[in-house]
Every structure is written in C-alpha cells, then in structure tokens.
Simulated scan of single mutants.
Amino acid sequence: MTERPFHEGLEARIADTVAPTLEHMGYELVRIQVSGKERPVLQVMADRADDAPFRVEDCEAISHALGAVLDVNDPFRGEWTLEVSSAGIDRPLTRAKDWERYAGHVATVELAIPMEGRKRFKGVVLGADAEIARLKLDDGSEMALPRASIRRAKLVLTDELIAATALPPAAAN
C-alpha cells in the first residue's frame, strides 16, 4: 500500500474515501484540505505514482472520478466545491517519501505543539522516516521533528528547487 499523508477529522474521513480510487487510477494522495464554512471547498492534491509530470488531463480525470465517489459518500451538507491540483514546485511535505525526495532543499515547518519554545522552523530538509522529519537549521543545528506534530511543512521556492524540478527540454513538449 502507498504511504498516505496524515489527516485528522473530516479531512481524514475524506482521505480514506478518495485514496483507494486515486491509487487505483495510478495517483498518490498528497493532501486533503477543507476550507470555508458556508460553501466548503475540498482541495485534493495529488501526484502521479509513476513520477511523470502532472497535467491538466490528470486533474480532469481525478475530478470526474472523485466527483462520483464523493456524490455517493457526500462529506458535506449543502453545496460544496471540489478542486483538484498537483502539488506544484513549492509542494507540501506530507509523506516520508516527500522528505526523502526533496532532501537538500529548503522547507518551512509549522508544528501543532511547540518544540524548544517555538512552532516554526526553516531549514534544509535532511529526510524522514515514519515518525521523525529531520531539518538542518540556518545555525547548523539539526532538528528531529515528530511527524505527528507537524501541522504544515512545505518547500520554499528557490532557484535550486526550480532547477531541480525543471523538465528536460524534450519532456516539456
């Protein structure tokens, strides 16, 4: 089974509902996010399991498939909107494989529970396992952050990240 990102509450229930369909289609769930109260917006962020570039056609296919799944297991009362997107360049780091893949790049992390008197950290990604994400801070110290305590973690858009994620000229066509 593919490693799935950690979610809580309604977002966890939605992730459990949509992830099997995504995986069957050849995608991986990156993040579920619900925003808004009057007319909720459900954002589903995904990657291609084959690591090929994510295209508009991928968003369309996922949107159609998940729309059908969510119509049956309607997570909201009343009207709501489904948005499907790729993780993008300055992507969230939600799975251990994301932390491993982007080791060496700069990220920001916000914890739910303060550690050493602070909730926010910025540094170079060193990797992660199932429990701990590692970050090298600007002062050279290393932090072992409990993944279960991470509220948000995302890459910082840098020239190095852009260069590392740029498509080779032949693949861009």
Rank of each mutant, 00 (worst) to 15 (best):
T108Q: 11
L126Y: 07
V124T: 14
D47V: 02
D74R: 14
A133M: 07
T21V: 14
G26T: 06
F6M: 14
L22N: 07
F76D: 10
A87T: 13
K136P: 08
P20G: 09
G67C: 14
E110R: 08
K97V: 15
A103Q: 11
R152L: 13
E28C: 13
L66Y: 06
L145P: 02
V125R: 06
Y27R: 08
A68R: 15
L145C: 02
L29M: 07
T158E: 08
S141Q: 05
D71L: 01
P92G: 08
G78A: 12
H7F: 00
R152Q: 10
M45F: 12
L82E: 07
I62N: 09
R118L: 01
N73S: 01
P114K: 01
P75K: 00
A128I: 00
G140P: 09
E60C: 10
N73Y: 08
A12L: 13
A172S: 02
P169K: 03
M45P: 12
E38T: 15
V34Q: 13
D90P: 08
T17L: 10
L70F: 01
L135R: 03
L93N: 10
L155A: 15
D139F: 07
A52R: 14
R134I: 02
I150F: 02
E8Y: 04
A166M: 14
P168T: 12
T17R: 07
S141W: 00
L42T: 08
A130S: 00
V125I: 14
S149T: 09
T94I: 05
I150V: 09
A166G: 10
E110A: 09
R134Y: 09
E8G: 00
E23G: 11
T81C: 01
I62G: 04
D51I: 06
E142M: 02
G9W: 07
L42S: 13
D58W: 12
H105P: 06
T2I: 13
G26D: 03
G78P: 13
R4F: 03
E79P: 08
I14T: 11
Y102L: 06
V44E: 07
W99G: 15
V156P: 12
P169S: 00
E57D: 14
